[in-house]
Nucleic acid binder design. Structure first.
Lengths: 234, 234
DNA sequence: TTTTTGTATTCTGCATGCAAAGTTTATAGG
DNA sequence: CCTATAAACTTTGCATGCAGAATACAAAAA
């Protein structure tokens, strides 16, 4: 499933129907993650509230939320800006994600339902298709979906949620930095191996593969940042 | 209970030159973590705002924040309640913390400054002192401080922050559930071994010890929950 | 007595007003 | 022409008012 689960921990509560304005907040999150709002951009309450069609109060609540996710920075008495992409912070985030992926791989192999693995397999083929068509946007979507579904498949909601939140920040870089063709091909091969290990429920091998995959991803992401391919607002 | 002594709250909120309301929000977090507000308690906006000496708007922002930390649950159109202590959720949280502690142990041994290790060692002796005096409250404080300092010593801010947030929920259980004398003594011995491994910068051993320590802690916490030693509001 | 339905009350969620902090612009002095 | 300073403007942070949802209560029906 490609639909982004937008929720924070709060959303795990028994919710029948979400407040109307959370849609607007999710839209703001997407604007930041997809790079339409550049790092460093000031987020004027009145203007942004107008653009999103909500009032300042729920928007302010959204700022606080997005700040905990590391997507915006709150400057006392000077409002909010889109959080900068600090390479060191990204590196640290990826290190934590590595620790989580190790657990994810272990748990997923041990206790993921067959249906979940089948779905991930399906997403993998979709991703292969996107790669064959050189459709980078679709590739990214399926890639994300695979990793998030894998996190879900581990059967630990806290683990999946934590992983997702950390991922949001890294995702911003991916959206802004294209991969080199070689790296793209290599990433696909890595995913092939990952899927094979998952299907075989070989936890030890999956952990190693995920760790290697993340190391490559880290290098790629940090290289993109170092090359200043990532733009920031003045 | 909060409702029993509303005046103490008002008195403990000193009027700052600039009404910085984050102090009030921290106070609310403490009330939840320390169990003065029982799981399941409804958090009436107007009442609570009055007790904390702030207005509803910043309090609502606090609710959203605490929801991401898993300390309150937001029920659409029905406000906020203190989050329930779901044993399965606590178990999942502890599993994630285990993965993080493995990384913490590894990084701390590899790159913690000597001063940080010395400080942890000092806290450890303070904790031993509290244990010798059977001062449970002080013991918990030093125990927390040790684990949090260890997380900081790993030199990864994202790691430390993530660990701290997950820890908040587990801490609530510790505050409410006393340890058995045997478990208490065993925990202290485990800490002795942990400190020894850290001082020797033996990452492999530290990881194993932390893992074992957490497993014991998990058993103890879940036992407390199972024995219904943890109270919840109706 | 128990269940149901209509009504009153309470509470949340959002919009908006206001004071203070911050920013920009204009002006005077060097 | 450049710098310093003050006035005007902008924006945030918080308080509060209002509409609608949810709950509690009461009376009527089974």
């Amino acid at each position: 499933m490609l639909t982004d689960s937008p929720s924070s921990l709060a959303a795990s509560a028994p919710i029948a129907r979400r407040p109307l304005h959370e849609a607007a907040i999710d839209r703001l999150r997407d604007l930041i993650v997809q790079g339409e709002l550049l790092p460093g951009s000031r987020l004027n309450e009145r203007v942004l509230a107008g653009q999103l069609g909500i009032s300042r109060t729920p928007l302010r609540e959204a700022f606080k939320l997005l700040a905990t996710e590391g997507l915006v920075e709150l400057l006392p008495n000077r409002g909010a800006i889109v959080a900068h992409l600090d390479p060191e912070r990204i590196r640290q985030t990826l290190a934590v994600m590595g620790a989580l992926e190790a657990l994810i791989g272990e748990l997923a192999c041990k206790q993921a339902p067959e249906a979940a693995i089948a779905e991930i397999q399906a997403l993998h083929f979709e991703m292969r298709a996107a790669h064959a068509r050189r459709d980078l946007a679709a590739y990214f979507r399926y890639n994300q979906a695979i990793h998030l579904n894998l996190a879900e498949a581990a059967g630990n909601a806290v683990l999946a949620l934590t992983y997702r939140q950390l991922n949001a920040n890294v995702r911003r870089v991916r959206y802004m930095a294209n991969l080199s063709p070689e790296r793209w091909d290599a990433a696909v091969r890595e995913h092939d191996a990952i899927l094979a290990a998952l299907s075989a429920r070989d936890g030890t091998r999956l952990k190693a593969l995920l760790s290697d995959h993340l190391a490559q991803k880290t290098a790629s992401v940090l290289a993109a940042l170092a090359e200043r391919r990532i733009m920031a607002a003045a």
